[in-house]
Design a protein around this nucleic acid. Structure first.
Lengths: 114, 114
DNA sequence: TGCATATATAAGCAAATCATTATATACTAA
DNA sequence: TTAGTATATAATGATTTGCTTATATATGCA
Protein backbone atom coordinates (compact mmCIF):
# COMPACT_ATOMS: atom_id res chain seq x y z
CA UNK A 1 0.00 0.00 0.00
CA UNK A 2 1.53 3.33 1.01
CA UNK A 3 5.28 3.40 1.35
CA UNK A 4 5.13 6.01 4.05
CA UNK A 5 3.63 3.97 6.80
CA UNK A 6 3.82 5.76 10.09
CA UNK A 7 4.54 3.78 13.24
CA UNK A 8 1.43 3.47 15.34
CA UNK A 9 2.82 5.54 18.21
CA UNK A 10 3.85 8.30 15.88
CA UNK A 11 0.53 8.23 14.06
CA UNK A 12 -1.35 8.44 17.35
CA UNK A 13 0.75 11.42 18.39
CA UNK A 14 0.01 13.24 15.16
CA UNK A 15 -3.69 12.47 15.34
CA UNK A 16 -3.91 13.63 18.92
CA UNK A 17 -2.24 16.86 17.96
CA UNK A 18 -4.65 17.42 15.09
CA UNK A 19 -7.53 16.34 17.27
CA UNK A 20 -8.05 19.82 18.57
CA UNK A 21 -10.36 22.15 16.69
CA UNK A 22 -8.09 25.16 16.93
CA UNK A 23 -4.98 23.30 15.77
CA UNK A 24 -6.84 21.50 13.01
CA UNK A 25 -8.14 24.79 11.65
CA UNK A 26 -4.69 26.33 11.94
CA UNK A 27 -3.12 23.55 9.96
CA UNK A 28 -5.89 23.69 7.37
CA UNK A 29 -5.29 27.41 6.95
CA UNK A 30 -1.56 26.83 6.66
CA UNK A 31 -2.16 24.32 3.88
CA UNK A 32 -2.56 27.18 1.42
CA UNK A 33 -1.35 30.18 3.36
CA UNK A 34 1.36 31.59 5.51
CA UNK A 35 0.04 33.15 8.68
CA UNK A 36 1.52 35.01 11.58
CA UNK A 37 0.64 34.61 15.22
CA UNK A 38 -1.37 37.79 15.47
CA UNK A 39 -3.58 36.69 12.61
CA UNK A 40 -4.41 33.51 14.45
CA UNK A 41 -5.11 35.50 17.57
CA UNK A 42 -7.60 37.54 15.59
CA UNK A 43 -9.17 34.53 13.88
CA UNK A 44 -9.62 32.43 16.98
CA UNK A 45 -10.47 35.27 19.31
CA UNK A 46 -8.22 33.90 21.97
CA UNK A 47 -5.13 35.00 23.83
CA UNK A 48 -1.72 35.30 22.19
CA UNK A 49 -0.09 32.82 24.58
CA UNK A 50 -2.77 30.24 23.83
CA UNK A 51 -2.00 30.54 20.12
CA UNK A 52 1.76 30.42 20.70
CA UNK A 53 1.34 27.26 22.72
CA UNK A 54 -0.66 25.55 20.00
CA UNK A 55 1.92 26.55 17.43
CA UNK A 56 4.74 25.28 19.57
CA UNK A 57 3.15 21.86 19.76
CA UNK A 58 2.74 21.76 16.01
CA UNK A 59 6.30 22.95 15.54
CA UNK A 60 7.74 20.50 18.05
CA UNK A 61 6.66 17.50 16.05
CA UNK A 62 7.60 19.18 12.79
CA UNK A 63 4.23 19.74 11.11
CA UNK A 64 4.74 23.47 10.81
CA UNK A 65 7.75 25.72 10.30
CA UNK A 66 8.38 29.27 11.37
CA UNK A 67 10.15 32.07 9.61
CA UNK A 68 10.79 35.42 11.17
CA UNK A 69 10.18 38.49 9.05
CA UNK A 70 10.93 41.58 11.04
CA UNK A 71 8.71 41.71 14.06
CA UNK A 72 6.49 38.97 12.79
CA UNK A 73 6.96 35.26 12.79
CA UNK A 74 5.20 33.55 9.93
CA UNK A 75 4.14 29.97 10.14
CA UNK A 76 3.71 27.60 7.26
CA UNK A 77 3.07 23.94 6.71
CA UNK A 78 6.25 21.89 6.52
CA UNK A 79 5.69 19.94 3.33
CA UNK A 80 8.93 18.07 3.92
CA UNK A 81 7.58 16.74 7.17
CA UNK A 82 8.31 13.03 7.50
CA UNK A 83 4.68 12.17 7.79
CA UNK A 84 3.28 14.88 5.62
CA UNK A 85 1.21 12.42 3.63
CA UNK A 86 -0.82 11.56 6.70
CA UNK A 87 -1.46 15.22 7.39
CA UNK A 88 -2.29 15.78 3.73
CA UNK A 89 -4.83 12.97 3.61
CA UNK A 90 -6.54 14.31 6.67
CA UNK A 91 -6.65 17.87 5.42
CA UNK A 92 -8.25 16.74 2.20
CA UNK A 93 -11.27 15.72 4.20
CA UNK A 94 -11.57 18.92 6.16
CA UNK A 95 -13.41 21.88 4.65
CA UNK A 96 -11.53 24.92 3.57
CA UNK A 97 -11.20 27.71 6.11
CA UNK A 98 -10.27 30.48 3.72
CA UNK A 99 -13.30 32.50 4.76
CA UNK A 100 -11.53 33.12 8.04
CA UNK A 101 -8.78 34.95 6.20
CA UNK A 102 -11.35 36.79 4.08
CA UNK A 103 -12.83 38.16 7.26
CA UNK A 104 -9.44 39.42 8.34
CA UNK A 105 -8.95 41.17 5.04
CA UNK A 106 -12.30 42.85 5.39
CA UNK A 107 -11.31 43.91 8.89
CA UNK A 108 -8.02 45.18 7.59
CA UNK A 109 -6.24 42.97 10.13
CA UNK A 110 -4.55 40.67 7.64
CA UNK A 111 -0.80 41.12 7.69
CA UNK A 112 0.52 41.33 4.16
CA UNK A 113 4.02 42.53 4.59
CA UNK A 114 6.91 41.19 2.49
CA UNK B 1 -12.59 18.02 -3.75
CA UNK B 2 -14.03 15.20 -1.64
CA UNK B 3 -17.81 15.17 -1.29
CA UNK B 4 -17.57 13.81 2.20
CA UNK B 5 -16.08 16.81 3.89
CA UNK B 6 -16.31 16.52 7.61
CA UNK B 7 -17.08 19.63 9.64
CA UNK B 8 -14.00 20.79 11.46
CA UNK B 9 -15.43 20.08 14.90
CA UNK B 10 -16.44 16.61 13.91
CA UNK B 11 -13.09 15.92 12.28
CA UNK B 12 -11.26 17.10 15.40
CA UNK B 13 -13.39 14.81 17.54
CA UNK B 14 -12.60 11.82 15.36
CA UNK B 15 -8.91 12.60 15.27
CA UNK B 16 -8.73 13.03 19.01
CA UNK B 17 -10.41 9.67 19.44
CA UNK B 18 -7.96 8.00 17.09
CA UNK B 19 -5.11 9.91 18.68
CA UNK B 20 -4.60 7.27 21.31
CA UNK B 21 -2.29 4.38 20.60
CA UNK B 22 -4.55 1.71 22.02
CA UNK B 23 -7.64 2.92 20.17
CA UNK B 24 -5.75 3.43 16.93
CA UNK B 25 -4.42 -0.11 17.06
CA UNK B 26 -7.86 -1.42 17.91
CA UNK B 27 -9.42 0.29 14.94
CA UNK B 28 -6.62 -0.89 12.69
CA UNK B 29 -7.21 -4.46 13.83
CA UNK B 30 -10.94 -4.06 13.29
CA UNK B 31 -10.30 -2.91 9.74
CA UNK B 32 -9.87 -6.54 8.68
CA UNK B 33 -11.09 -8.48 11.68
CA UNK B 34 -13.83 -8.89 14.18
CA UNK B 35 -12.56 -9.01 17.73
CA UNK B 36 -14.08 -9.48 21.12
CA UNK B 37 -13.24 -7.62 24.28
CA UNK B 38 -11.23 -10.39 25.85
CA UNK B 39 -8.97 -10.57 22.83
CA UNK B 40 -8.17 -6.91 23.19
CA UNK B 41 -7.52 -7.40 26.87
CA UNK B 42 -4.99 -10.07 25.94
CA UNK B 43 -3.42 -8.03 23.15
CA UNK B 44 -3.00 -4.83 25.11
CA UNK B 45 -2.18 -6.42 28.42
CA UNK B 46 -4.46 -4.07 30.24
CA UNK B 47 -7.59 -4.32 32.36
CA UNK B 48 -10.93 -5.31 30.92
CA UNK B 49 -12.64 -2.08 32.06
CA UNK B 50 -9.96 -0.04 30.31
CA UNK B 51 -10.69 -1.86 27.06
CA UNK B 52 -14.45 -1.54 27.49
CA UNK B 53 -14.08 2.17 28.01
CA UNK B 54 -12.03 2.62 24.86
CA UNK B 55 -14.58 0.61 22.91
CA UNK B 56 -17.42 2.64 24.29
CA UNK B 57 -15.85 5.83 23.06
CA UNK B 58 -15.38 4.38 19.62
CA UNK B 59 -18.94 3.07 19.63
CA UNK B 60 -20.41 6.33 20.89
CA UNK B 61 -19.30 8.25 17.85
CA UNK B 62 -20.19 5.36 15.56
CA UNK B 63 -16.80 4.18 14.30
CA UNK B 64 -17.30 0.66 15.56
CA UNK B 65 -20.29 -1.60 16.02
CA UNK B 66 -20.92 -4.40 18.45
CA UNK B 67 -22.69 -7.70 18.01
CA UNK B 68 -23.34 -10.09 20.80
CA UNK B 69 -22.73 -13.77 20.19
CA UNK B 70 -23.49 -15.75 23.27
CA UNK B 71 -21.27 -14.61 26.08
CA UNK B 72 -19.06 -12.62 23.81
CA UNK B 73 -19.52 -9.26 22.25
CA UNK B 74 -17.73 -8.88 18.97
CA UNK B 75 -16.68 -5.53 17.69
CA UNK B 76 -16.21 -4.56 14.08
CA UNK B 77 -15.57 -1.44 12.08
CA UNK B 78 -18.74 0.32 10.99
CA UNK B 79 -18.14 0.80 7.30
CA UNK B 80 -21.37 2.73 7.01
CA UNK B 81 -20.09 5.29 9.45
CA UNK B 82 -20.82 8.80 8.20
CA UNK B 83 -17.18 9.71 8.16
CA UNK B 84 -15.75 6.36 7.33
CA UNK B 85 -13.65 7.77 4.51
CA UNK B 86 -11.66 9.85 6.99
CA UNK B 87 -11.03 6.82 9.13
CA UNK B 88 -10.15 4.79 6.05
CA UNK B 89 -7.60 7.31 4.81
CA UNK B 90 -5.94 7.36 8.19
CA UNK B 91 -5.82 3.60 8.52
CA UNK B 92 -4.18 3.32 5.14
CA UNK B 93 -1.18 5.09 6.59
CA UNK B 94 -0.92 2.96 9.69
CA UNK B 95 0.94 -0.32 9.57
CA UNK B 96 -0.93 -3.56 9.80
CA UNK B 97 -1.28 -5.04 13.28
CA UNK B 98 -2.18 -8.58 12.24
CA UNK B 99 0.84 -9.95 14.06
CA UNK B 100 -0.98 -9.15 17.29
CA UNK B 101 -3.71 -11.61 16.35
CA UNK B 102 -1.13 -14.14 15.20
CA UNK B 103 0.34 -14.07 18.68
CA UNK B 104 -3.07 -14.78 20.15
CA UNK B 105 -3.52 -17.72 17.86
CA UNK B 106 -0.16 -19.10 18.90
CA UNK B 107 -1.20 -18.61 22.52
CA UNK B 108 -4.47 -20.31 21.87
CA UNK B 109 -6.27 -17.26 23.20
CA UNK B 110 -7.94 -16.24 19.97
CA UNK B 111 -11.69 -16.66 20.17
CA UNK B 112 -12.95 -18.31 17.03
CA UNK B 113 -16.47 -19.24 17.85
CA UNK B 114 -19.27 -18.85 15.27
C1' DT C 1 18.96 54.83 23.99
C1' DG C 2 14.08 54.11 25.10
C1' DC C 3 9.47 52.79 23.90
C1' DA C 4 6.11 50.14 21.27
C1' DT C 5 4.89 45.87 19.08
C1' DA C 6 5.13 40.81 18.28
C1' DT C 7 6.10 36.62 20.13
C1' DA C 8 7.70 33.09 23.56
C1' DT C 9 7.95 31.17 27.96
C1' DA C 10 6.66 30.31 32.86
C1' DA C 11 3.51 29.43 36.49
C1' DG C 12 -0.90 28.28 38.10
C1' DC C 13 -5.51 26.36 37.70
C1' DA C 14 -9.83 24.01 36.02
C1' DA C 15 -11.36 20.53 33.07
C1' DA C 16 -10.60 16.41 30.50
C1' DT C 17 -8.47 11.92 30.07
C1' DC C 18 -7.13 7.34 31.20
C1' DA C 19 -6.16 3.97 34.27
C1' DT C 20 -7.60 1.37 38.52
C1' DT C 21 -10.76 -1.12 41.77
C1' DA C 22 -15.34 -2.43 42.87
C1' DT C 23 -19.70 -3.72 41.39
C1' DA C 24 -23.62 -4.72 38.21
C1' DT C 25 -25.52 -7.13 34.25
C1' DA C 26 -26.01 -10.81 30.77
C1' DC C 27 -25.30 -15.17 29.25
C1' DT C 28 -23.90 -20.41 29.73
C1' DA C 29 -23.84 -24.63 31.72
C1' DA C 30 -24.22 -27.73 35.62
C1' DT D 1 -31.25 -22.15 40.58
C1' DT D 2 -26.39 -21.51 41.25
C1' DA D 3 -21.68 -20.85 39.75
C1' DG D 4 -18.66 -19.21 36.31
C1' DT D 5 -17.39 -16.31 32.42
C1' DA D 6 -17.69 -12.00 29.58
C1' DT D 7 -18.74 -7.47 29.52
C1' DA D 8 -20.39 -2.84 31.15
C1' DT D 9 -20.71 0.76 34.37
C1' DA D 10 -19.51 3.56 38.50
C1' DA D 11 -16.43 5.77 41.49
C1' DT D 12 -11.96 7.39 42.34
C1' DG D 13 -7.36 9.26 41.58
C1' DA D 14 -3.14 10.59 38.92
C1' DT D 15 -1.76 12.72 34.77
C1' DT D 16 -2.40 15.60 30.87
C1' DT D 17 -4.32 19.36 28.53
C1' DG D 18 -5.49 24.01 27.44
C1' DC D 19 -6.50 28.07 29.13
C1' DT D 20 -5.20 32.36 31.98
C1' DT D 21 -2.01 35.98 33.87
C1' DA D 22 2.56 37.57 34.34
C1' DT D 23 6.94 38.12 32.51
C1' DA D 24 10.89 37.67 29.23
C1' DT D 25 12.88 38.23 24.66
C1' DA D 26 13.41 40.12 20.02
C1' DT D 27 12.70 43.54 16.65
C1' DG D 28 11.60 48.30 14.74
C1' DC D 29 11.62 53.00 15.13
C1' DA D 30 11.91 57.73 17.16
Amino acid sequence: MSENLVAVDKAATILKLLGDKTRLMMVKLLENNTCCVCEFVEIFQTSQPAISQHLRKLRDIGVVMEERKGQWIFYSLNKNYDHYSLVEQILQQVPNQEHKLKELEENGTRISCC
